[in-house]
Design a protein around this nucleic acid. Structure first.
Lengths: 367, 367
DNA sequence: CTGTTAGCGCGTTCAC
DNA sequence: GTGAACGCGCTAACAG
C-alpha cells in the first residue's frame, strides 16, 4: 500500500497548493503565471496573493518536462580564461538582462570533443536557443546544431555557410589590414608570432601572408605554431594548472618568441603578435634590450585589450567588437524566437585597426 | 479519449523504448544506466546494446523531477571579466572533470541583489552543491544557502563563521604582508591605490594600514575609493559596455591614479596597487615620466597575474592560489556529498608575497 | 536481482 | 475565460 507523497517531497508548495488557496484550478494558476493576459483580473489578484503567501516558486524541471521547452540560452565558448570570450559573455549577459532567458554556459576548453559532449548535453535539454563560438564545428556538432530545432547563432567569426545565422568578423581581413598598416609605416621585415594556432588564428596568419605577398615581401621567419610539447613545458608554473592553450597568450612567451625571431631574422623590424599579451611581452623585451619602439621595432597586437593604450609607448592592435558581438547575438536570438528576425544570415561586424605609437614611425596612414 | 502519444513528442526514444527493445522493465534500464552494479551482467549487455542502437539519451528534466535531485554544481562568481575569477573557474572545471557533476554558472556582476536572484533560481533547481565567492552574502542569500539542503562552500576569502565550509585566504593578511615587504625594502611613503573597493579590497586596505601603523608610518594620501561617477566617466570607451566595476582594474586608471597620488604626496616612494592591472599602469607612467623603478618608486600589485613577471622591471605582487582554490572547493564538495569530508570548516590557503625587481631596492627581505 | 505501481509538478489537450 | 483529465520521462518504493 502506498502513502501518497505529500505536496512535494520537501514540503515546498506546488501549483496545486496555490490553486487550492486561491480557490481556482491549477491550470489557471499556471496561466496566470506565464501569460497573465489569459486570466481575468479578479482571479489574477487572488492567485498573485496566494503565490506570495505561500512563497510559491514554480519547478523548472516539471515545467520543462511538461512543455518540452525551457528558457535556457545555451552558450558555448572555448575558454573562460581569455578576455576575448569573457567580453563576449558580458555582451550576452547584458543582452538577456530583463528577458526570461537564462544563460547556460558551456566551456569547451578549445576541445572539439568536449564541444560535442556539451552540445549533446544541451540539446537534450531542449534549450530555447544556442550560441556557439566559431564556425568550424565538427561534423557531429554541426549536425546536432542543425537538428536542435531552435535558433542557432554562430559568433566571433564569419562564414558563407552558416548553420542559421552567423555574426562576427573576418579574421583574415583583420590580419591583412594590420599587416598593410605596418607596411605602410615602412616596415619591411615583419614577423608574425603566435603561441598556438586556433582556426581563427590561422586565418589571421593567412591575412598577414596575403598582405606581405601583395607588397612583394616575404616572411622573415616563422615563429608560430609552437609545438604542444614546448607549450606544455612552458606551462609548468607553480600554482598553475595552466593548460597549454592558455600559454599562447602569456607575455613571457612573447618575450621568448621575440628573442627567437630576432635570432632567426636579424633584420627584423616589426612583429605582428597573434594576441595582445604577446605584444606586451615583446614591448618589455624591447625595453630590456634597449630597443627603441617604434623606431627600431614596430609592435602590433590583436584584440585591443584595455591595457594596450595605457602602455608606453602605446601599443597598436586590432580592435574587435566582442561585447557588441555577444549582445548582437542575443538580440538576433530573441528576434528569431519570436519569428521577427529580419537581419541577414551573415553579419560582419568588422574590425578596427588601432594605430598607436608602437607602429607609428611615419605618422598616420594616408587613406 | 486519449491517443497515447508515441514515444516522446519529438520522436526521440524514451526509457520505455529501450526497455522494450531489451526485453526488460524500464526500471532495470534506469538502474543499469545509473548504477550498473545493481544489474546482472546479462541484462546489462542487452540494455547497453539497446541504448546504443536507439541512441537513447536520458532526459535530465524528467530525471530531476522524479528523483528530486540533479547533478548540478551551482557556482556563483561576481564577474567573468576578471582573471581572478576565471582562474578559480578553471580549477572548478578541472575539479568536476570526470565527475557526474555539471557546473552551472551564475554571474552576480558584483551585485548582491543579482546574487539573491540567482541563488533563488538555483535553489529551486535543487543543485547537488553550491560554491559561492566571498563570505559577505546578504542575510537573504545566507538564509537561502543555509536552507539549500546541500553542501555549500564559500571561496576566495576566509571567515570564522562559514555557512558550512570556507576555503580561501585572508585578504587583510595579504595586504599587511606586502606592505611589510615594502617597508622592509626601505620605502617610507607608501600609497595604496585602488579603483573601486569590494569587501575583499577593503580588507586589503586595512591590512596595509595595520602594517603602516605598526611601523609608525602614515598614509601619504588616499587615492582609493574613486567615486562611482568618476568610474562611470572613465568607462566611456568606444565598444565598451564596460561596467564600472571593470574599470577598477584598467591600467589607464593606474596611470591616472598614480599621477594623482604624486600630486597629493610629492614625497611618495612606493605604491601598493589593489590589483595588477593598476600596477602595470603605474609602471608605464613611470616609464613615461622617466621615473626609475625600484629606485625612485617601488611598485607592488595584487593577484600575481601572469604578466607580472614578464614586465621590465618585473613587478612584485601577492600571489593568491586561485586555481587551487577552485579545485579544492570541488574536492571538498565531492567529499561532502559522499559524507567523507574530514577537513576543517575553515581552510586558509595562504598567499605568497612575490618580491620582484619593482620593489627590491635592498635585495631579498631578511626573514 | 527484477518488475510493478504510482507519482514527481506541471502544461497540454479538450470540454464547458 | 476556466476547468478536468491525462501524460511528459523518469525513478522511489515496495513486492517478488
Amino acid at each position: 500500500m502506498r502513502r501518497p507523497r505529500k505536496s512535494r517531497g520537501d514540503g515546498r508548495p506546488t501549483i496545486a497548493d496555490v490553486a487550492a488557496r486561491a480557490g481556482v484550478g491549477a491550470i489557471t494558476v499556471s496561466r496566470a503565471l506565464r501569460n497573465p493576459a489569459q486570466v481575468s483580473a479578479t482571479l489574477r489578484a487572488l492567485i498573485d496573493e496566494a503565490v506570495r503567501e505561500l512563497n510559491y516558486v514554480p519547478d523548472l524541471h516539471a515545467r520543462a518536462l511538461a512543455s518540452t521547452r525551457t528558457d535556457v540560452l545555451a552558450v558555448l565558448v572555448p575558454s573562460l580564461s581569455h578576455t576575448v570570450f569573457t567580453d563576449v559573455l558580458r555582451g550576452i549577459y547584458d543582452g538577456v538582462d530583463g528577458t526570461k532567458l537564462h544563460v547556460q554556459l558551456g566551456n569547451t576548453r578549445f576541445d572539439p570533443q568536449e564541444e560535442e559532449r556539451l552540445l549533446a548535453g544541451f540539446v537534450r535539454q531542449k534549450p530555447s536557443a544556442i550560441i556557439v563560438s566559431g564556425v568550424d564545428q565538427t561534423p557531429a556538432s554541426r549536425r546536432m546544431l542543425e537538428e536542435a530545432g531552435c535558433p542557432v547563432v554562430q559568433i566571433m567569426d564569419v562564414t558563407d555557410d552558416p548553420i542559421q545565422v552567423v555574426i562576427g568578423f573576418r579574421h583574415r581581413e583583420a590580419g591583412r589590414r594590420m599587416t598593410e598598416h605596418l607596411i605602410q609605416q615602412g616596415y619591411r621585415s615583419i614577423a608574425f608570432i603566435s603561441g598556438w594556432m586556433s582556426g581563427r588564428s590561422l586565418e589571421r596568419l593567412y591575412g598577414y601572408q596575403e598582405a606581405l605577398a601583395a607588397a612583394g615581401l616575404s616572411e622573415p621567419c616563422k615563429v608560430h605554431s609552437l609545438s604542444k610539447d614546448e607549450l606544455t613545458a612552458l606551462a609548468s608554473r607553480a600554482d598553475s594548472g595552466v593548460p597549454p592553450f592558455l600559454e599562447f597568450s602569456r607575455p613571457s612567451l612573447g618575450r621568448e618568441m621575440f628573442r627567437r625571431a630576432k635570432e632567426l631574422a636579424p633584420g627584423l623590424d616589426a612583429v605582428f603578435c597573434n594576441n595582445d599579451s604577446l605584444a606586451l611581452g615583446v614591448l618589455f623585451e624591447c625595453h630590456a634590450q634597449g630597443i627603441r619602439v617604434p623606431e627600431d621595432i614596430g609592435i602590433a597586437g590583436f584584440n585591443d585589450l584595455d591595457f594596450m593604450d595605457a602602455c608606453y609607448p602605446s601599443l597598436s592592435s586590432v580592435r574587435t567588437h566582442r561585447y557588441r558581438n555577444g549582445y548582437a547575438a542575443v538580440t538576433a536570438v530573441r528576434q528569431m524566437l519570436q519569428g521577427s528576425y529580419e537581419g541577414p544570415r551573415v553579419v560582419d561586424l568588422g574590425v578596427e585597426v588601432m594605430a598607436r605609437q608602437s607602429t607609428l614611425r611615419r605618422g598616420p596612414d594616408r587613406a
